[in-house]
Design a protein around this nucleic acid. Structure first.
Lengths: 332, 332
DNA sequence: CTGTTAGCGCTTTCAG
DNA sequence: CTGAAAGCGCTAACAG
């Protein structure tokens, strides 16, 4: 099969390459009739300009790199859907990498995306990430970056967050209103902004609710089911709570799993609340009380922010905070 | 920052472009010392050859397209991990599309991957797909294709499957051995090979187990939780089973959800079995008896098959069948 | 409005 | 073993 190019099309239509090229861009510098003639011929021959050649010439790839901790965390699967939707609408394709919760891998990913010449990067950090040389390096190379969800405080960088303080506060307030007094909080990794913000929301709600809070009531985990399982074990060994507020659904799943194993009734003996509203939160028994984040929208927003920056390189970095919703189910 | 290219490096080292180029390929047509000198200088200057230019020249992109029904199906998230692992080890990057169970979108995806000049495509079909013009079109353009999991019978195409007949047979046999007599089967979409193969396994096991099987005992769903929910509703209206074997975990989740809602005890009144072993199968209450598929390995195998075909274009298409495992939990 | 020309950064003959 | 030159398919001045 003869490979068809702009040059060939030009010959067939007795025009020059440049004119053909113009027809395929938003150039108004072309006779509408000629343009139409070209577009029709192209459709007939099933021709589309070679994006590789275009990339080489323009030094733009129309490709966005995405770095997430893992595909298999449903939150990220959904977020990617949101990113994808906006990206493909705007003519960008996605190059997705997993950091697998390793800072090392995260840096490696940045490098490989850079080598793949992506136009910009959207990322959610690992639980290990505390430094941000790799992000600054991107700034220096003029590759726009948008951080979402798992974010650390890097100056001059766009971010998409949810209102973690508020939602954590709301949940705590709700738990208190249900009469729970001995509330344990399982916090996330200390390096992440979301973890400290959520913890702050919890603390303040306890303070306002006039419930004394000992530091022994705060445990730390990461975002895994196993971590929840282990925390629950530790909690039962040390204290006798009537409620456990986990700063992540997965952790809540792990906690419930352990409590069930030990024959502790949820919410009869101990209430459990989560954060994220993963798809399975509603399915599990008892259905999990949690905070719903607009996951899809988070992805969309991140993509929008990045593309905006790509189109207008001099626009200022933005921080978007999206609202959350308290979802009350059976576990509390 | 000065953009560094092969040309620049050549100047600095007082060599020609071609020599530099040679150093970065497997060319043995170069003095080892020169090569080393070049590689060192490159590392120092943080230079890597521009893959876009390389693609343009070689008409290869080192990119693999992947089309899956949805990111948010955990099965596919895991499969992609497997694909990714092999791909990146072999120097390929991934372009992932979702068909969202729409044949229309699937064809659109093929088109857009083609336009992105991927070297090959790995795909799992939608529940709607019955035709395969789009795949033949890929054959014609010499773009290798590997189908996995959801496959239809397309000649001359590599496929990665699990032993659906056998696993379905095993599960049915197991249910019979547990004393269940009135077993309902919820089959998958009729267009897919896996659905008919699984159904066949069920049928034969029932036959061998000497349990009479009426056509009213077979229901049809797709792969969604909702579909399971609806099927369960219909089943309870029509028949009084003691076990329901769902050809997909999601459907089983939906079934259990409905049964719980109606106060039917699982497995007390009705046993439920699934197929896939999604991560949540173990977490749900009661934990689901199911068939474990080597998901990660399925992805790896698909990628290996494709890359092999990419390296040796004249190699024959292959069909790989991977083994499964019966996982017995509480739901039966 | 259209054509000409000169590259983008790399690989690949073909000579030496 | 190394270099010179042509060209992959496209865009972007510049001239008309």
């Amino acid at each position: 099969m003869e490979k068809i190019t702009i040059e060939l099309l030009a010959q067939k239509l007795n025009l020059s390459k440049s004119t053909i090229s113009r027809a395929f861009r938003d150039s108004f510098d072309i006779n509408p009739k000629t343009k139409q003639r070209i577009l029709e011929a192209a459709k007939e021959l099933d021709f589309e300009p070679n994006p590789i050649a275009k990339s080489l010439r323009e030094k733009k790839t129309q490709r966005i790199g995405v770095i997430i901790p893992s595909f298999t965390i449903p939150f990220y699967a959904q977020a990617i859907c949101g990113i994808q939707e906006i990206a493909s609408k705007e003519g960008y394709s996605l190059l997705i990498c997993q950091s697998d919760e390793s800072y090392e891998a995260e840096m490696q990913n940045v490098k490989s995306l850079l080598n793949s010449r992506v136009d910009g990067i959207i990322m959610s950090l690992t639980t290990e990430t505390t430094q941000y040389k790799h992000i600054l390096q991107l700034h220096k190379k003029d590759i726009p970056v948008v951080l979402f969800n798992r974010v650390i405080d890097i100056p001059n960088t766009s971010k998409v967050l949810v209102d973690d303080y508020d939602s954590s506060y709301k949940m705590t307030e709700y738990l208190i209103s249900r009469g729970y007094k001995n509330i344990i909080y399982i916090a996330g990794p200390k390096n992440l902004m979301l973890a400290s913000t959520r913890l702050k929301g919890f603390r303040n709600a306890m303070y306002v609710g006039k419930i004394e809070l000992s530091e022994d009531s705060i445990f730390y985990g990461d975002f895994s089911i196993e971590s929840g399982f282990k925390c629950a074990e530790e909690i039962l060994r040390k204290v006798k709570p009537d409620a456990i507020f986990c700063s992540c659904d997965n952790v809540a799943f792990g906690v419930i799993k352990y409590l069930k194993k030990r024959g502790v009734s949820v919410p009869g003996d101990i209430a459990v609340a989560g954060y994220t509203d993963e798809p399975f939160a509603a399915l599990i028994d008892p259905a999990l009380t949690t905070i719903r984040q607009p996951i899809h929208e988070i992805g969309e927003t991140a993509a929008q922010l990045l593309i905006k920056k790509l189109k207008y390189p001099y626009s200022k970095p933005e921080v978007k905070v999206l609202p959350t919703e308290l979802i009350i189910r059976e576990s509390t």
